[in-house]
Each structure stands twice: as structure tokens, then as C-alpha cells.
Design a protein around this nucleic acid. Sequence first.
DNA 1: GAAAACAATAGACCATTGTCCATGGTTTGG
DNA 2: CCAAACCATGGACAATGGTCTATTGTTTTC
Lengths: 113, 113
Amino acid sequence: MKIGELAERSGVTRDTIRFYERNGLIRSHPGQSATNNYRDYPEDNLFQLEFLTKARDAGMSISDLQDLVNATKGSCDMDAAKEVIGAKISELKEREEQIRSVVLFLEESLQKL
Amino acid sequence: MKIGELAERSGVTRDTIRFYERNGLIRSHPGQSATNNYRDYPEDNLFQLEFLTKARDAGMSISDLQDLVNATKGSCDMDAAKEVIGAKISELKEREEQIRSVVLFLEESLQKL
DNA sequence: GAAAACAATAGACCATTGTCCATGGTTTGG
DNA sequence: CCAAACCATGGACAATGGTCTATTGTTTTC
């Protein structure tokens, strides 16, 4: 599908899709038609964009996501990939803890009001 | 205490402390000495900075924190304050969910490798 | 076959969240 | 008393994550 449709269906703007692609977070196979150089996105980019959006919302940076993409793709060896993913999981869990502690504090504040 | 000591003890740089203060997240009572205009911080700013740091790590923005400060301070009525805090709690919990779902996805990815 | 809609690229622009620097005044230790 | 260390202010700078614009080329549609 073309970028407009992907944008429409994923809820991510064209510009942001191109931005992600420039940064290696998604990939299109281009030059299908030979007369133009429109990007062509396979269906599963929908899924990937959904993940990227959720991950960004969860506080992961672009370069975090690049790490993940690089780890799982290419001929990278499994062990290294596992390590990268494991590290990101730890970071996320730590952040989750952080959030929980802030929530606790705010709930106490609510009580005291 | 003066800004240097607060920075030292809180682990937050002088510049960042001044930045937070410019943005109304903390407050010093200045002009103690009359010959200078050094800021003077009461002890409990340590606690506040700790909270601010944790909250920032949890993904709250400066303006989120301004909202909180404005809500709990001043002659704002209780109900409004409660509403603001409650809203922030909801947002944080949503973010926590987001994180959990990303963690789940990554853990599944680990399995599949 | 012409206008409207869509796509590409490059580069400017924006907000956010600090961080650094220059300048100049104040305090403090030896 | 004087140098080193500290503080203030204002403004420049930087990285991040987009977003917008200008220009140009391609489809689509009436």
C-alpha cells in the first residue's frame, strides 16, 4: 500500500512514517512501478507502526528502537539479540517501578488533601 | 542552603535547579543577606527535587508538573486540586499499562528467538 | 487531457528540556 | 587582602522528535 493509506490506517502521519523510515525503524520496498519512486508498504507495517507507537508512548527513544530493530534483523547472532532485548525489558520495568512510586506519592497526596 | 549545596545533595545540577525554579517547580526565598541576591533554599527542597526527578523519569513533562504545583499550592480549591492529581494518576497508570504491553511483546519476541 | 489528489526530497522550523558560556558581583580561606 | 570558589543573569547552544513548506513529479478522476 502507499504511504497515504498506511498513514490513514495506522493513525501515524505521512511525515512521521517517513521520519521513522529514514531512521531505519520501518522499511518499504520501493520502486515497484518503475515510473515513480513511491514507497510501497506491505501489510505488516501496520503492525510494526502500532508497536512503534506504543513503544514511544512507553518512553522508548528512537535510538532504543533502532537498537531493537538492529538486534532482531540482519545476521546478528541470537545471543547478542537476546541481550539487547533483555536490556530493554529491564529498562522498561525500571521505568514501570518509577511510575508506580510516583503514583503512590500522588495517591498519598490525594488522601492528605 | 545555597544552590551549590542543594545541587550537591540532590544530585541535580545548579543549572537545572534554576531552570526548574524559573518554571515554578520549586521556590527559594531570596535576598536573605541584603548584600547579595543568592537564592536560599529550605531543607525540604531536597525532597521536592527528589520527587521532581522521579516524576520526570516517570515521563511527566514540566508542564504536567506545573499543573500539579499550581493545583496543590495557592488558594486553589480542594476539589479542583483533587481532579488535577487524579487526572495525572490516570495518565501515569495508562502509561504503566503501555509499558507492560511493550514488555509483554518483547518477552514473546525473546521466546521466539 | 486537465485539475485534483497524492507522492518524493530537502531543508526550515518548532517545542521541550536542559546545558554551557560570558560577564560581573560576592564570599571565603589562607 | 587577594585569589579561588561561588552566585546571578541573559542568551546561545544542543539533542530529540517531529512537523511544515517549497518544489517537483505521478496518478487518478471527471
